[in-house]
Amino acid sequence: MIGILDLGMGNLRSLSNAIDHSGFDFQVTENQAAFDDFTHLIIPGVGHFRAAMGAVFDRQLRPQIRAFAASGRPVLGVCLGMQLLAAVGTEGGEMEGLGLVAGTVRKLELGPGLRIPHVGWNSLTKKKDHPVYEGLKQDQDFYFVHSFAMQCDDSADVLGETDYGGPVTAAVSHANVVGFQFHPEKSDASGLKLIENFCLWNGKC
């Protein structure tokens, strides 16, 4: 059973449909009650870091999510959900994140002529091999919508990058935790492949 954590931030229907389409059972949950039933946990989200972490703290979910990750089961953060994996966020003021990937989420620094938010299809440059990349080619495109991005403390945690006025962290991984800045559930066949790979993953690299 794939667990989808509903923090009240954005559209979960597409992600649920993508998991269903890929042939896996899922359950959407707002708290940790069902965590024991889950083989995998997905943290989606669109919106503000501060609002989302606020929801995590309000429901006292931070230790529960960290315990889930410590159990070795795969955890996936999508878009804002990936940013929440970081140690620190800065959107709306500095704030503690889930601390599952060492790094800080900062506003994109853009050169002249580039527009914020970074919206649209951009290529994913794989920075290392990983089970979730099974069957994916180098530089396939994924759908991004974001104004902030994670900067990893350890470059070994950078799973993929995209180019938007310079390299931007597009995917991270640390042990059994992965994060995608883009929306795999909105990224056509390549995105569905990533979701399928994650759902099949046992958390080991």
């Binding site: 931030m9 954005g10 669109v46 919106g47 503000h48 609002a51 938010p117 919206v119 919508v145 104004s147």
Partner: peptide, 8 residues
């Protein structure tokens, strides 16, 4: 915009 982000 504040709830779902400007891109929404």
């Amino acid at each position: 915009s504040e709830r779902f982000g400007a891109q929404a």
